[in-house]
């Protein structure tokens, strides 16, 4: 568990680190962090419990227990990763374990947004390319890999793969505006105008604002 590295802050242009693959489609947020660990009022302790139940399965060296992965920060996943509950505890647990970027074939929507709000890019790469990426990692497990948000590429010493990241997410990461709060609260005038035009706040009252 790579808890020493700092949490994301400011503009994110590249993420460099070692990577590992967690196989399986439709891995849901209940598996990423089982509900019993949601009994908390802070996210601080979640890193230890990421995939707690999957890691208990007998005769299996779960990738999150594999000593070779201890200092790795890039996770490679398959399809529809993060489906299910909207709990931000899932990306928080991954981040606190040490994950700083996720590469996958596809992601569930709320999970994707929750990761982005923490400054953790989820980048997409189609099936044939991801197989080639996984093969490359297998052949050299300790190689560094770089997710270049600007170039939309994954780069190793001798290879590269194109990634899809979506213009919005890309700009938010590059500008550092993935943390939306300050932008949102600076628009008070526009918020007030929107409120003045909402029938349920003006033409009739449903409840007091």
């Amino acid at each position: 568990m790579n808890q020493n590295s700092k949490f994301p802050k400011g503009p994110i242009k590249t993420i460099t680190g070692m990577s590992f693959h967690l196989s399986g489609n439709d891995i849901d947020t209940d598996r990423i962090i089982p509900a019993r660990f949601l009994k908390c009022i802070s996210f601080d302790a979640l890193g230890d419990h990421v995939f707690a139940d999957d890691r208990k399965e007998p005769n299996k060296n779960h990738p999150f227990d594999d000593i070779k992965n201890t200092n790795k920060s890039i996770l490679i996943v398959d399809k529809n990763f993060g489906c299910g509950s909207s709990r931000e505890h899932a990306p928080q647990a991954l981040m606190r374990w040490g994950i700083r970027g996720i590469i996958g074939q596809s992601f569930a929507e709320i999970f994707y947004g929750n990761c982005l709000a923490l400054g953790i890019p989820c980048v997409q790469i189609p099936e044939p390319e991801i197989l080639s990426l996984i093969n490359s990692i297998k052949s050299n497990q300790m190689q560094d890999l770089s997710i270049n948000i600007q170039l939309q590429k994954i780069l190793t010493n001798d290879q590269s793969w194109n990634i899809e990241i979506g213009n919005e997410s890309r700009e938010m990461l590059l500008s550092g505006e993935w943390d939306a709060t300050s932008k949102l609260i600076s628009q008070t005038n526009k918020i007030n105008i929107t409120m003045e035009n909402l029938p349920y706040l003006n033409k009739f009252q449903n409840f007091e604002c």
């Binding site: 709990r87 928080q92 947004g113 929750n114 709000a117 709060t181 949102l184 609260i185």
Partner: peptide, 17 residues
């Protein structure tokens, strides 16, 4: 549904991105 960072944003601004 929204994550906790968005809950924070809605509390702070009644809006979200």
């Amino acid at each position: 549904g929204i994550g906790t960072s968005q809950v924070r944003d809605v509390l702070a601004s009644q809006t979200l991105s």
